[in-house]
Amino acid sequence: MKKMTKGAIVTGLGVALLLGGGGTLAVWNADQASNAGAITAGDLNLTAHTGVWTSDVTGRIDDVNAYRVVPGETLTYEQPVTVALEGDGMRATLSVKGAADNGFAATDGVTVSDVTLTNEDGLSISDELTPAVDGAFTASATFAFESYEGQGRAGVNESVDLSGIHYVLEQVAPTTD
C-alpha cells in the first residue's frame, strides 16, 4: 500500500503543479464586434462620343481618311466626352494616347498637343479632374504638321495613321499628407 500511497501523492502533486502555475488547462479569450461599417469603391469612367476634325486652312473635314493635309497645316480633333468620377479623394487626368504607338511623333513632322477640356459653360479645365468638376466636356487636341520650307518635296504622299489616337482617363495616385 505504501507504493500506492506514494503514487497517489506524486500524481496529486503533479496535478497541483499543473493547476497552480506550472501549466494551463484553458485559454481565456473574448470577442467584440467593432461596428466599423462598410466601404464602397468609387468609380472612374470615360464615355466618348463622335468627334469632328477641322483644319486651320479649310475648316471642317467631313472624311479625314480622304483628306490631304499640306505642310504647315494644323488639324484639330474635338470630341464630346463624359467624365464620371466617384470617390472621396478621387483625382484623374485626361490625355491623348496612341500617337507614338502608331509610328509617328514630333520627329516625324507631326506634333500632338496636350488635351484641352472645355465644359458646357466654355470654361477650360486644365487641372486634375475631381468629382466636383466631372461631367460633360469637349476634349480637343491639335496635330500640327511641320512646314517643310526649303526642303523640296519632303513629306510628299506620306501617310499618318490617326486611327489609334484615343483619350485616356487615368486616376492620379492619392498622396498622403
Rank of each mutant, 00 (worst) to 15 (best):
A139T: 00
G42D: 07
D101Y: 03
T74R: 14
D56N: 15
Q171A: 15
R91F: 03
V70Q: 09
S147A: 15
S126C: 06
G14T: 13
T5C: 07
E78K: 13
G21M: 07
G150A: 01
R153H: 02
D62C: 04
L117Q: 06
V172A: 04
A8W: 05
T107M: 05
K6D: 07
A144C: 10
D101W: 02
A139V: 00
L94D: 00
D62E: 15
L46E: 15
S126F: 08
V69I: 14
Y77D: 01
A139S: 04
E86K: 15
T142I: 08
T74H: 06
A84N: 15
H49N: 14
E128Y: 13
T116M: 02
L25G: 13
W53I: 09
M4A: 11
G42Y: 02
D134C: 11
P71E: 14
P131V: 03
V112K: 01
A154F: 08
T142A: 09
G98E: 05
A106W: 09
S163G: 12
G152N: 09
T116K: 02
E149D: 15
V156G: 01
D62S: 14
G150Y: 00
L169P: 01
L19M: 08
V27I: 14
G155D: 07
K97H: 12
L94Q: 00
T130D: 13
R68P: 01
T175Y: 07
L117H: 05
G21A: 09
D31L: 08
V52P: 00
R153K: 04
V64S: 03
A41N: 08
I61D: 03
T54L: 06
A100E: 12
F137P: 01
F143V: 03
L25C: 09
F145G: 03
V160I: 15
L25Y: 10
V115P: 00
G155Q: 08
A132H: 08
N102E: 07
E73S: 12
G37V: 08
A8P: 03
H49A: 14
D101H: 05
D114G: 14
V10N: 05
D62Q: 13
Q79W: 02
T93A: 14
S95K: 08
E86V: 13
V69L: 06
D108I: 02
T130F: 05
T111H: 10
T74L: 09
L19C: 12
S147T: 04
A173D: 13
S140Q: 13
D161H: 13
D114I: 00
L94M: 12
T118V: 15
Y67Q: 11
V133F: 05
T82G: 07
S147Y: 05
Q151T: 09
A84W: 01
N157T: 04
R153I: 01
N65Y: 04
I61K: 06
